[in-house]
Amino acid sequence: MSFLAVITALVAVALGLPFYRVVKGPTVFDRLVGVGVAGTKTVLLICLVGFMYGRVDMFIDIAIAYAMLNFLGAIVVAKYLKQTGGEPQ
């Protein structure tokens, strides 16, 4: 229990750090990289929470759905930006 709690806290810290890039990032692509990095960590965080609460089977299904949404979201936004030529500022 305590070991998992420490790991979960560390992953939560790692999840928070990229948001500095999301807020600061000079271009829209920098923000998207930050969002992607945070998304990958969220998948792990969901699984860890599942292990801590002893409901692994349920939380893993949520994590699978989240991983797919994260991937699809990145692809869709990238395709949109490619078509409209997202202005680097």
């Binding site: 998207l32 990289v33 990145a74 990238a78 490619k82 997202g86």
Partner: peptide
């Protein structure tokens, strides 16, 4: 996904 972003 990274490749798609890089291309964009």
């Amino acid at each position: 996904a990274t490749h798609a972003l890089g291309w964009a």
